[in-house]
């Protein structure tokens, strides 16, 4: 039998004609093309659009207007309110989701039985279609038949039903509650996974060294999961600032802009007021914030995983 004939198959010979340096990129090309065309290219285009007065119904008549759109972001008091709402939303929503999620994850790991079943149930709010989750909360916060109004009346907090979703003072808060409900399970699962990853023997060693349960938590648990907590924190920020559905389903950002966050404002600017140029300028703002978060996410990622 001749060995030389069997050395290379025809397929391998055909592939061999592609230059070495290029061949390895071929299989990655489809994914890069998809991401490039449908995610990266639009971002690049939006940079240009943000300097025009493009209108949704007359897209061909767009004219270059310089930094006018950005000037409006700077001066428009409505936008200031929206940015403040966004800040409140992201900070309060993230902190609440992290605290509740962490406690929940810790309870699942340390105190509750059937961890795997329980964590699957806890995850339901996160995997439920966003519109479904938001609808439930809209119904529960309802002004005429809402169970939450009834609960507050029973507890004596309020005397009569309040139309929370229609009040300029209160309308920001129900969507935040809904969002915490959706995100806390995710953080709980991250916590649970991190806790599971800590070697039990470390706790045994700490106990031998005389550490109280609190000290074990402080000096073993927290340091061991610090990077995972940072990853979780960044995810909470990213999901919160990106969120559109919870607000849009519950209040449409109203009344006025009292419950609008940046994404809701972008939607309203583009698809309600048809000001695509202005909406693009707002998108750039959101984009810049996400870029910072993503940068840190990748930094922490590198720390955890080393080389990819």
């Amino acid at each position: 039998m001749s060995y030389a004939d069997q050395a290379l198959s025809s397929y391998e010979r055909a592939l061999g004609r592609v230059p070495d340096g290029v061949r390895v990129y071929l299989p990655i090309l489809p994914v890069l093309a998809l991401v490039g065309v449908f995610i990266l290219y639009p971002i690049a285009q939006a940079i240009w659009t943000s300097f025009t007065d493009k209108h949704l119904l007359r897209p061909d008549e767009a004219e270059f207007v310089g930094v006018e759109n950005y000037g409006e972001v700077w001066t428009n008091p409505q936008i200031h309110e929206v940015l403040w709402n966004t800040f409140v939303w992201v900070s309060v929503g993230s902190i609440a989701a992290i605290v509740i999620g962490f406690v929940l994850g810790w309870l699942l790991h340390e105190k509750l039985p059937y961890t795997s079943v329980a964590s699957a149930i806890v995850l339901v709010p996160w995997v439920l279609p966003r519109v479904v989750g938001a609808s439930i909360w809209k119904f529960m916060f309802g002004g005429s038949q809402g169970i939450i109004n009834e609960l507050l009346v029973q507890l004596g907090v309020i005397d009569d039903y309040v139309v929370m979703l229609g009040s300029t003072e209160l309308s920001l808060w129900p969507p935040i509650v809904g969002m915490v409900w959706r995100l806390a399970p995710l953080f709980a699962l991250l916590t649970l996974t991190s806790l599971k990853g800590i070697d039990r023997q470390l706790y045994e060693a700490a106990r031998m060294d005389g550490a109280t349960p609190w000290e074990q938590f402080r000096y073993v648990t927290l340091p061991m999961m610090r990077y995972n907590l940072v990853i979780g924190f960044l995810l909470m920020l990213i999901y919160n600032i990106r969120n559109f559905s919870m607000v849009w389903v519950m209040t449409r950002g109203g009344p006025g802009v009292s419950s609008s966050t940046l994404p809701v404002m972008i939607y309203r600017a583009a698809f309600v007021d048809f000001q695509v140029g202005f909406a693009s300028a707002l998108s750039m703002l959101l984009f810049a914030v996400l870029l910072v978060f993503s940068y840190y996410y990748i930094q922490v990622y590198d720390k955890i995983r080393g080389e990819f």
Partner: peptide, 30 residues
């Protein structure tokens, strides 16, 4: 192993963060 591998992985990781609201307007244009 090849040049640009880490950059590609970072790019893909970052592209998980953006879709949705940040690009809805440009996506509509595209």
């Amino acid at each position: 192993e090849f040049r640009g591998k880490n950059a590609i992985m970072s790019l893909l990781l970052a592209s998980l963060m953006f879709p949705g609201t940040a690009i809805m307007v440009p996506e509509w244009e595209l």
